[in-house]
Amino acid sequence: MGEGIVIGIVIFTLATFLGFELIQRVPPTLHTPLMSGSNAISGITVVGALVVAGGGFGWISTVFGVGAVAFAMMNVVGGYAVTDRMLRMFKKDGGER
């Protein structure tokens, strides 16, 4: 295990720095879509949920897993869909985007 967790911490730290750099460049006008888009991305937990729900680890795991899949999918589908809906509203002067 030792090495896996160290690699994980390295990735987490680098991704956090990358996140700070990227998100500081998002203009305030897009901060609401940024938040709903972040909701969608945090739905990545669906990856873990799918394995728990369909891995055949007994009924408790299946119940937890199906619940997790449903919660995460609400974030994924709802988050991306509402972000798209909002971003389509942003038009430049003259009507084009």
Binding site: A15, T16, S42, T45, G48
Partner: peptide, 13 residues
């Protein structure tokens, strides 16, 4: 790792 990366991005945002 994809959970770690995506989670860190959302965390920093």
């Amino acid at each position: 790792h994809v959970l770690i990366i995506a989670g860190a991005l959302v965390g920093s945002s």
